[in-house]
Structures are given as C-alpha cells and as structure tokens.
Design a protein around this nucleic acid. Structure first.
Lengths: 232, 232
DNA sequence: GTCTATAATTCGATAGAC
DNA sequence: GTCTATCGAATTATAGAC
C-alpha cells in the first residue's frame, strides 16, 4: 500500500525538511510551556530566560510539523516525531503535556496576508491568489494543517482561527460594505482552500497540472468578485 | 476534549442514521466480494444468487459509511462499525478482507450530476451549484469521504475517481473547447469541494451561515464562468 | 533534563469450534 | 455463516532512576 513504511526512516530527520524557511516567520515561540512542571518563568512577556531545552523544543516542533503535515493527526505518532527530532519520546510529553498540546504548539501559522489597501482595487484579486499559491507551495505545513483540520476538530479550529485572525482583517479593509465582509471572506476562503485541497491534498491531476499563471488567470477574477463585486 | 466517547454508543446503530435515503441510490451492491473465500458466484454480472448474508453486508456497509464519515479513516474502527451493524467484527473481515476493502466497498458514491446540456447555458452554473448543495446536505457520506480523502490516499483516490467518472463527462459535454475541459473541471471541483470543506467539514461560521439562495447567488456565476467563459 | 521501563489500551487480523 | 477467544503489534501516557 501507500502507507508510510516505519522502517523507511529508521532515524534522523526527514528528507524533505523545512530548511528553516517559512518556519522562521512563525512567530516568537508560542509554545504552551511545560504544563505539569513548575512554572519557572512566570513573566513570559518580552524577556525570557532561554531554557536549556530550547533547541530540543524547536527540533520537536519542526519534526511535529513535518509529521502532522505528511501523515495527518492520527498517524503522526509521538514516537515518530521524537525519533525525527533525535529526542526521547518522553521529552515530548514533558514539554507539551500530550499529543493535542504538541499539535497546538506546532500549528502556529503565519499567512502573511499582504496589505490589499495599498493596491488599486482591480489588482487585489490577483495579488491575493498569487500570494496564497506561493505560500502554499513554499510551506508544506499549510497542507498538513488542511489534512489535520479535515479529521481532527483541534485542527479545524486551528484553520478557523488562523483565517479569522489573519485573513479577515485584510478582507474587511478591502470590502466595500462592512456587513458583507463575513460572507465575502468565507467565499474567498472556500475558493482558496478548495484549490489547495485539490492540488496539494487530493492531488487531482488537472488541478495539479495548472501552472501558476493559469491559476492566477482563472482564480483572480473569482476572488476579485467575492471581494468587491456588488452583492448578487 | 471533543473526541468521541466510545462509551457513548455502547451498542445499537448510530443516532444520525442514513434512514436508507441516498444510500439506496448508491448502486447495485458493488462490494468486492469475499476475497479469501471460495468464489461461489464467478458470474457477477446481471444475475447473482442472493446470499444469505446480504442483509448483514448491507448493515455493515451502512454502518461503515456512517463511521468513516464521522470519524475519518483511522479512527473508524472495524470493531465500532461491526457494533453499529449489530454484527460480529470477524464477519467484517470475512466479507471484505481487510479495512481497506471495507472502505472501498463503502465508498461507492453516486453524485447524480444532472444533464446540463438540457438547460440553456446561462442556467447551468446555478443548476450545478444547487444540485451539489442539496446533494451534500442530504447525504453525510459525502462529507465523510472528504474527511477520509484528506488523510488517506485510498480516500483521495476515491474522490478523484468519483469526480473523474461522474462529473467530468457532464462538464465535457457542456464545455465549449474540449481541450480546456480538464482545467475547467478542476476549477469547478475546487470551488465545489472548497465550499463543502468550509461548510461541512471545517464548519467555518460565516460559511455555515450562508443560506442556500445566498450560496447559489454567489457561487453560480463562478461555476458559470469556469464552465463556459472564454479562457482568460 | 534526560532516559529506561512499562502500564494500560486498543487495534487489525487469525484460528477454530459450532 | 456465525461467533468466541486470542495473538501480535502498536499506541499514548506514566513512574521513577540517574
């Protein structure tokens, strides 16, 4: 079958690593902290005394992102994540409490939605489409979150939150009628996620074969209409 | 957490049953047959001697569809499916060989795509959108297949095949330029599946709140454009 | 902080009686 | 055809030594 062979990667990090690219923009280490352990740093504000385990935590998070992305929530085991990170599985439990805590820490995503108000209205659709295409192809974590969100409720909540917090404000700013912004944002999200689903998760052949330019040419008018067209 | 409580349904069928509605239209019992058992009916063509176990097989398939739909591939256990069907788990193995065989048998879907050529071109987008909305809300199996397809490759193949075999011909017949039909079908599929993902799987609030009429009003022009508009 | 050992479940799958 | 009993493997999670 096409299932993952556990013996294929007996040790060491995964081949298709993130290479520290978009991962570096994820944000300032927003892990949940060691849950059942003594709180050694109550003032988690600007300054924080670096823990000796920061390297281990980062390695775990990177491996978790890869595994969750590749295998989904259920098949991504703590053992495999720990093995990829070169760390004992019990450390993962100690740092993140349980599997859900680990996922929550690994699921921090930055969509880096561009500022649409700086563009002339007729270019906003194309700008948004091109941004999401490049975002999706540059970071397999997004595909993973989509995979997890379809099966696990914590993953779905993650996607809902990411789009509500990061995409909505920009869409609100670009929408003509504020009362319609919610519906317009949902429509845009449906087309963006739908194409991502077909291309990167389901791998529907004709969707995979579309070039970036073709995608922009087809999808930009759709997004543009959802964004600014008069309500039908 | 929101995970399923195994003790919530100690026995008996699931509360949200299919009530034999769309399931009856799935097709003429296309199960894989008992794989490791003696082939008692080699001529599985038009006529077939009804097996004594047909009722059990149907019960298993119905329960499997519900479980796969609700829990996804990994969490849907053969034990739980058998319990819902009121049948011993070993029977599932005997009938369908293994878990993948069971899924393949349960994943037979009929999209019942309407004949678009009978409609004036300007009404085809709305017709298609309304059909898929009603289809999706009338049969939770489709949501389940989407859930499974996101995590499991067999599920993804199922979705690819269903759309390729059932939706493509109708779209081909309605598309102006045959060479562009593949891309147009992929675009339509991305918008249909994307909205289904947001509404029924991820349950993004603004997408869930959209009424049928609003959905048709917003999505129909998109589908219409993917279907017949000149290539951008 | 790190690791070993293991508890406690649960799973898919098999063997065999009736 | 149906069911009981169970195997072997895998999982999350915990306890505790160093």
């Amino acid at each position: 079958m096409v299932e993952r062979d556990p013996s294929a990667t007996p040790s060491g990090p995964r081949s298709a690593g993130r290479s520290g690219g978009p991962a570096a923009a994820v944000g300032p280490e927003v892990d949940a902290g060691p849950p059942p352990v003594a709180a050694e740093a109550p003032d988690v504000g600007v300054h924080r005394r670096p823990r000796r385990s920061d390297a281990s935590r980062a390695a775990i998070l990177a491996a978790a992102r890869d595994r969750f992305a590749a295998d989904g929530y259920e098949r991504a085991t703590i053992r495999a994540i720990a093995r990829d990170a070169g760390i004992d599985p019990s450390m993962v439990m100690r740092y993140y409490g349980n599997k859900e805590g680990l996922f929550a820490a690994a699921a921090e995503i930055d969509l880096r939605v561009p500022d649409l108000t700086a563009l002339p209205p007729e270019e906003r659709g194309a700008r948004l489409v091109r941004h999401f295409i490049e975002l999706w192809e540059g970071d397999e974590t997004l595909t993973g979150m989509l995979r997890v969100g379809a099966t696990n409720d914590a993953g779905a909540e993650c996607i809902r939150r990411v789009f509500a917090e990061q995409a909505r404000p920009m869409i609100d700013a670009a929408c003509p009628v504020p009362a319609e912004a919610a519906a317009r944002a949902a429509l845009i999200e449906s087309q963006i996620l739908g194409m991502a689903l077909c291309r990167y998760v389901l791998r529907v052949p004709p969707a995979v074969d579309l070039s970036h330019d073709e995608l922009v040419a087809w999808l930009a008018p759709t997004i543009q209409r959802y964004l600014t067209a008069e309500r039908p």
